[in-house]
Write a protein that binds this DNA or RNA. Sequence first.
DNA 1: TGCCCGCGTTACCCTATGGTAAAATCAGCG
DNA 2: CGCTGATTTTACCATAGGGTAACGCGGGCA
Lengths: 194, 194
Amino acid sequence: MIQTSSLAPLLKSAFDPYFNAPLATWIAFADNCEHVKFKKEEVIKPQNTVERYFYFIIEGSAGIFLWKEHNFVCLDFAFDRQFCSDYMSLLTQQTSPLQVVALENSEMLRMPVAQYNRITQESMGQVLRLVAAESSFLSKQQQQIELLTKSANERYEILLQQFPGIHNRISQHHLASYLGITPQSLSRIRRAHR
Amino acid sequence: MIQTSSLAPLLKSAFDPYFNAPLATWIAFADNCEHVKFKKEEVIKPQNTVERYFYFIIEGSAGIFLWKEHNFVCLDFAFDRQFCSDYMSLLTQQTSPLQVVALENSEMLRMPVAQYNRITQESMGQVLRLVAAESSFLSKQQQQIELLTKSANERYEILLQQFPGIHNRISQHHLASYLGITPQSLSRIRRAHR
DNA sequence: TGCCCGCGTTACCCTATGGTAAAATCAGCG
DNA sequence: CGCTGATTTTACCATAGGGTAACGCGGGCA
């Protein structure tokens, strides 16, 4: 069993671009976390439940999904060193229709919401929480801009730029649902790309 | 000229649903603001500039727009007692392609970004800033969900529910661009609605 | 009162994407 | 190495929404 505190450098390097906290702070943070593993396609947080954890991906990937008619559409992807809770439900502590699913075999660090709330009352934790909120907003607004102003084809190109190699890690029907199209349409787009 | 501090009760009542601050705090807040007016269709913040103010709408409305090919598409509306800056640019203090426009003759309260940053280092200000970020995220995610999972027709119905009477205040081509369709398509949808 | 001008509407055809179904390819496993 | 089931591709037609253009209507203004 890995000591979670040994993962502190990883946390520090992931968040250093946003704000500076000494390694000791990240060790304390990691000490409040649990080290968990998920199998590909395993449901981390089912729909219509309350999110109980703040998750950080050590290695692997996850998707945030929403049921629509006959299948799940993907609202967002998260990869190594990213945050991947159902943030909506984490914030409100209400059930949400969103479901979080591991998209590869993954290792994560997770902190129970009670400790997340406690920690985000301390000074560094406030910054962490604000950074999480503001950067989540920025990326959501970016996604909205793309949905409103780009074609499916352009959105696919942007996705590939944003996450190079994503098409080797994530199945096509997930990518398609994220783009707001069917797998068949995505296949057509990929064909045109060659 | 209205004393901005006389608007403190309005601020307090607008934010009370999110967190509780005594009236005195809002008076102090308002004292840092300027009372400004805009005419219908007046540009409050042009595209490709940096947002210099935190805006609060006393009365009226505004839209956040993005240039696409031959016209502006609307990313969001804000009405009385809502916040209406180019939040992306306010946060990053970088230029952004977003443009903020008054959609009716409007009165607003605005606080320069330097004071906004100063105030959001104090305790109540931190809460304000976090609330702004988290609620902006929630509403953006909701918009993304609607774009991905609803038809233009359904999105129009949702918009009417969310802002009752909006179709009497905002022109159809703005509504259409917000929904991601053309004014002609919106006209078709409205016809079907009768 | 009558004339414009802007906005919304209608009409027409076009294109991107959806839906269904079948074929092709790939991947894991005996 | 070949079977089997899953994933991806292709094909075919259907539909929502786009583009252009013409029309109509209502309000401001001469």
